[in-house]
Design a binder for these strands. Structure first.
Lengths: 161, 161
DNA sequence: TCAAATTACTTGCAAATTGAAAGTTATATC
DNA sequence: GATATAACTTTCAATTTGCAAGTAATTTGA
């Protein structure tokens, strides 16, 4: 039947969920090696262009990066935009849905500092972990407002569509 | 050289970390389709035997389950024990390191409730999400103490080794 | 007490995913 | 106009995932 093809074309790609569980459904999206690393790079390492991501410590392959960014865009976690003054460079920015992942990133940091450090001899020290623990909510709000501030120009462009 | 073999035998299996970043290192352990699902099943669905896990909604394959449980044990996130009264059944219990993942599970629930529900039409309602949001710390403590209470007998056995 | 059932796996193989390297296209810079 | 840069795509090999079937060690029930 043509219907199936048509529908799958309109949706571009439907996400597959394993079951009714909210936690498992979150992991159907976030549960892989790269998705949250990319979110972290945007949120706290100020990466926003395709090139930025390829130059990171984690050294993601370009084909994987392209497929993950496409997936994040389709899910509404990231928006892809172009500034009028540069038609070569694309910007990938976190949406509100993406920014709402900050608490998860913060909890991963804390757990890692306390439980993974002993397993990874090269892990770097993060002095901000103490601040993070002393007032989580404030720290989360700070990360999010910093993100919005440093991308305010591009985010404005995004709003005018 | 024999040395390489000997060393890898003593460690059973070293975990590979991509870089110095604490968040990426956490994801080197937790960033896959199954690990956090298994933790969730132990923490809030009271699963503890190999059979319990195979009967869950997520329907994990037995070979994958065996390999993930082995990995979790090697990382010190889960302990495998046997009660003296049943030599057939093994119990898999969360260690303190595993219980410390509770905040991550809670944040995944909240993000999912607010951002994934719209994408997964079959996702179940979780009335406890409201309670969770109103007092996260209390909710986390409750999940952890419930876990310890209902497994207190087996955890005692574990302590006597 | 011994055959059937149960638990905890392991094995073999096919399918899907990941990743390294090289190639392509469109823009920007010199 | 030539070179460089950004953002991909393609190809193919390697790794991982997953289904299905098989095995070994208890435990249960007649």
């Amino acid at each position: 039947m043509y219907f199936d093809r048509l529908i799958s074309y309109l949706h571009t790609m439907e996400h597959k969920f394993r079951c009714e569980c909210p936690i498992t459904s979150a992991l159907d999206i976030l549960g892989d090696k790269w998705i949250l690393v990319i979110i972290k790079q945007m949120l706290i390492e100020d990466k926003k262009t395709f090139k930025d991501f390829t130059e990171s410590d984690e050294a993601i392959a370009t084909n994987i990066l392209a497929s993950k960014l496409k997936c994040l865009e389709e899910l509404g976690i990231v928006s892809k935009i172009q500034l009028p003054e540069n038609r070569k460079t694309n910007l990938y920015l976190l949406t509100e849905k993406g920014l709402a992942l900050t608490p998860i990133i913060v909890e991963l940091s804390i757990w890692s500092d306390e439980n993974v450090r002993e397993l990874n001899s090269i892990m770097r020290d993060s002095p901000e972990i103490a601040v993070m623990k002393s007032n989580k909510n404030k720290f989360i709000a700070m990360i999010q407002s910093n993100y919005k501030e440093r991308n305010s120009y591009a985010l404005k462009t995004l709003a005018n569509d």
